[in-house]
Amino acid sequence: MTAAAAFLFLACTTVPAHADARVTEGKVGLSVKGKGLSVKRAGGWMEGHGTGVRARLYTVYKGQRTDITRWKDATPVTAGMTKFSNVGWNLKGRSFWDGTWLCVQFNKADGAPCAKIHR
């Protein structure tokens, strides 16, 4: 295992994605929808409401991090007693290299769950 791969394994809660996954880390979650190496939609959520909550998607491939979206404002959602901030992206079938980690980051929460895109 390379140092970068070991770091990702320890730093992120990960799930093999097959471009279709749902993973949480602490108060943050990531949902990825797609097929094979192609991702159609990705979304993230964070427990709780707040002002100025924003999120972005990034990838890590062979130890290199690349932001793939800009910061996007999250929408506060209340479902019964549960409050969370939600954000989603239409990636329109964007393809990724086999072994790419797709991650979500919120500006108001620790945790950055990642899903591994693979064949």
Results as ranks from 00 to 15, higher is better:
6 A>F: 04
8 L>N: 11
8 L>E: 11
11 A>R: 03
12 C>P: 02
14 T>K: 12
15 V>C: 08
15 V>T: 11
15 V>L: 08
17 A>G: 15
17 A>F: 10
18 H>R: 09
21 A>G: 11
21 A>S: 13
22 R>M: 13
23 V>E: 04
23 V>D: 01
24 T>D: 05
25 E>T: 05
27 K>V: 07
28 V>E: 00
29 G>E: 06
29 G>W: 04
31 S>Y: 12
31 S>P: 12
33 K>R: 14
33 K>C: 14
33 K>V: 15
34 G>N: 12
36 G>E: 05
36 G>V: 11
37 L>P: 02
37 L>D: 03
38 S>W: 07
40 K>M: 10
40 K>D: 10
41 R>Q: 12
41 R>H: 15
42 A>R: 01
42 A>I: 00
42 A>Q: 00
44 G>I: 02
44 G>P: 07
44 G>E: 04
45 W>Y: 11
46 M>I: 01
47 E>F: 04
47 E>I: 04
48 G>V: 07
48 G>F: 07
48 G>C: 08
49 H>V: 05
50 G>D: 01
51 T>W: 08
51 T>G: 14
53 V>P: 04
54 R>T: 06
55 A>C: 08
56 R>C: 04
57 L>P: 10
57 L>T: 09
58 Y>D: 15
58 Y>T: 08
58 Y>E: 11
59 T>I: 14
60 V>R: 15
60 V>H: 11
62 K>V: 06
62 K>T: 07
63 G>R: 15
64 Q>F: 08
64 Q>N: 12
65 R>S: 14
65 R>A: 14
66 T>H: 09
66 T>W: 07
68 I>G: 09
70 R>F: 13
72 K>S: 05
72 K>C: 02
72 K>D: 03
74 A>W: 04
74 A>S: 12
74 A>E: 04
76 P>L: 13
77 V>Q: 13
78 T>R: 15
81 M>L: 13
81 M>V: 10
83 K>T: 09
83 K>C: 05
83 K>N: 08
84 F>I: 03
85 S>W: 02
86 N>G: 05
86 N>Y: 14
86 N>F: 11
87 V>W: 06
89 W>V: 00
90 N>V: 01
90 N>F: 01
91 L>T: 05
92 K>A: 07
92 K>V: 01
93 G>W: 06
93 G>L: 08
93 G>Y: 09
94 R>P: 00
94 R>L: 00
95 S>A: 11
96 F>T: 00
98 D>K: 15
98 D>A: 12
99 G>R: 09
100 T>K: 14
100 T>E: 08
100 T>M: 07
100 T>R: 10
101 W>Q: 06
101 W>D: 03
101 W>R: 02
102 L>W: 09
102 L>E: 10
103 C>Q: 03
103 C>E: 01
103 C>S: 04
105 Q>H: 09
106 F>K: 00
106 F>P: 00
106 F>Y: 03
109 A>L: 00
110 D>G: 13
111 G>W: 00
112 A>F: 00
112 A>H: 06
114 C>N: 02
114 C>Y: 03
114 C>R: 01
114 C>F: 02
115 A>S: 13
115 A>L: 10
116 K>T: 12
117 I>K: 04
117 I>E: 03
118 H>E: 09
119 R>Q: 10
119 R>F: 10
